[in-house]
Design a protein around this nucleic acid. Structure first.
Lengths: 214, 214
DNA sequence: ACTTGCATGTTACTTGCGGTAACACGAGTG
DNA sequence: CACTCGTGTTACCGCAAGTAACATGCAAGT
């Protein structure tokens, strides 16, 4: 009985929290990452202090929001990586999944990429790269794990896999960011070009005539 | 005569500007990218409005500051890319140059990466990826140019080169960021691993036993 | 029934930063 | 001597993060 009641309270709190997150989501989607706490509270039909009671500070809210989207995106990516197909196809599917996601919701994507914020007052510590972009870090780690599980890389494989994981994710991210801004080609072409890069076409390409002497 | 006086005045203004930039540099180096205009002005021994007269707004100051460092780093990178050596060595030298730079001055590097800012008031437009990270964009474009000049990539080479330029830069950046935070290996090992990735070892590696059926 | 406790909600405030207006001094020029 | 122009100041506005103090509704304890 009291259990049900307790869970009832907790459920209510959780539901509130989800509603707040969804409101925040809408505002961020509309106004971008610099959305103010006031705006988010207004969207949720309440006032600021409640947000602070639920999430501590702006960073907390953003972290919670980021976690939702990050989890969702990572699920999609896992599905693509785990698809039953050969390696090249899986790589292309993964790239395409990521690019489709950022194409569909640029605002969300942009929000996920720079929880820069930095505590506005106090906070001198700084610690480069520590809290930078959780999404990129998580993607890198997950990809590293997949690589290490699936590929036979000989000695030092774990470290190599991690470097590659973060490197590939960074490649995907930077290329996607640039592509989203300039739209120089179709998504399929971009995917193909990146996969070609990963497949060693850079090393295999011939020099152009008039390459530097020596 | 008046010419000398004019140039004298301009020189004086330019010197002031450089002094202000150096002061800003020290503050950013010490406090990170969220350094306040007040702090910078204090470091320079003056007050805020002068900064605004010289740089317009915070974005202007940051842009000027970023340009200095970006130009310097790009010069180093160009030297590495243009070294008289075979392709693999040049690629490794370029990676190493970049990584050495971010290793030497993490604060500066971190500052260069997120001029996120976003106009604090007004400004709904948003335009994803437009003003994101000038340094990454510039590096990507420059590398694309080098690739397109040097390599024979067949039809569509220009677009391919640009994708690769931004992709490689992103790979370097993300791997460097992660490496700087965790220091899981030496710089040389990181360089070697990344070059291996670019050389197609991902595609060449064998499957591990117990890979998913189908 | 009355009080206690707790979550939820409010208004009103403080602090700090980006940015600006208005004023003040010093030097060269008719 | 008046004029203006560059350099500097103080004092202010607006806005957003974050907090304190107060109000209310609802379950439980006696």
């Amino acid at each position: 009985m009291d259990t049900t009641q307790r869970t009832e309270q907790q459920r209510s709190a959780d539901r509130r929290r989800r509603e707040l997150l969804e409101a925040a989501d809408r505002v961020v989607l509309r106004e971008g990452p610099q959305a103010s706490m006031n705006a988010i509270a207004a969207e949720a039909g309440i006032t600021k202090p409640i947000l602070y009671r639920h999430f501590g500070d702006k960073g907390g809210l953003y972290a919670a929001l980021a976690k939702r989207h990050t989890d969702a995106l990572l699920d999609s990516l896992r599905a693509a990586v785990d698809a039953p197909a050969d390696r090249r196809e899986r790589v292309e599917a993964t790239l395409d999944t990521y690019l489709a996601a950022i194409e569909a919701r640029p605002q969300v994507y942009r929000f996920l990429m720079h929880p820069a914020e930095g505590a506005p007052t106090g906070d001198q510590g700084f610690d480069v790269g520590k809290q930078w972009a959780p999404l990129l870090r998580r993607m890198g780690e997950e990809l590293a794990q997949v690589i290490e599980e699936r590929l036979d890389l000989g000695p030092g494989s774990q470290q190599l896999a991690r470097v590659w994981g973060h490197g590939i994710v960074g490649m995907m991210h930077a290329a996607g960011d640039w592509w989203l801004g300039e739209r120089p080609c179709s998504r399929a072409e971009l995917v193909r070009s990146l996969a070609d890069l990963l497949w060693g076409r850079l090393a295999a390409a011939g020099d152009k005539v008039g390459s530097p002497g020596f």
